[in-house]
């Protein structure tokens, strides 16, 4: 089993990925868990999170279900190509849907590239402020919003965010000519196309 699959199984990753706990809360729980370990109490992180009130009973169950599900899925073909690609594809969908002209799509790609630069090695807060600055320029609000599509993933590292944004910028640029087609494209078209593309990409060879 590859490292990336094991990485996605940890409670600390799951609770953040599922949006139940933010980084600060997780740090708090980890500190407490470490304190408990020093006291000789080997507490599971999920118990600590629940006792701190950071997750409730349902969320605890969801985390455990996800963990068990991923354990099963990890041995199935295609599972190892994890969900890493989902987010930048999603960002491209958002930007392509929001922007209704080829020039606007290029602007979105530029915003995504700027987002990538901001995301590299910088905390998420700065990226948000970068988008905010971009929205102040008339006409680029949608482009800046598109950039938010991927990097709002609170569990990703700065490098992963930057890579995702760059990929999204490339895909968004590639989608610019699609806007020239005489077809009214809706999010439904993008959802179906992206689902098919991701499924084909994950097909075991």
């Amino acid at each position: 089993m590859s490292d990336e699959v094991v990485e996605g199984l940890r409670v600390r990753d799951l609770v953040v990925e599922l949006g139940y706990v933010d980084r600060a809360g997780l740090e708090e729980a980890l500190d407490l868990q470490e304190d408990l370990h020093e006291q000789g109490v080997k507490a599971h992180l999920i118990d600590v999170l629940e006792d701190l009130g950071l997750i409730d009973e349902d969320q605890r169950l969801q985390v455990l279900l996800h963990q068990e599900m991923r354990l099963v899925l990890a041995d199935l073909p295609g599972a190892r190509r994890d969900q890493r690609h989902d987010r930048w594809v999603m960002a491209a969908i958002v930007s392509a849907s929001l922007i209704r002209s080829p020039l606007g799509v290029l602007a979105a790609a530029a915003a995504l590239a700027i987002g990538a630069w901001l995301a590299a090695g910088r905390p998420w807060r700065w990226v948000a402020l970068g988008w905010l600055a971009a929205t102040a320029v008339p006409g680029t609000a949608a482009a800046a919003t598109a950039a938010a599509g991927v990097t709002g993933t609170s569990g990703a590292t700065s490098r992963e965010r930057a890579t995702a944004l760059l990929r999204a910028a490339v895909l968004t640029t590639a989608l610019a000519p699609v806007r020239l087609l005489p077809v009214e494209l809706t999010p439904l078209h993008y959802f179906v196309a992206a689902a098919l593309a991701l499924a084909v990409a994950r097909r075991p060879r």
Partner: peptide, 13 residues
């Protein structure tokens, strides 16, 4: 397996 996760979610959407 190839439809698990994001592809299935996108179809649902």
């Amino acid at each position: 397996p190839s439809w698990r996760g994001a592809p299935a979610r996108l179809l649902v959407l």
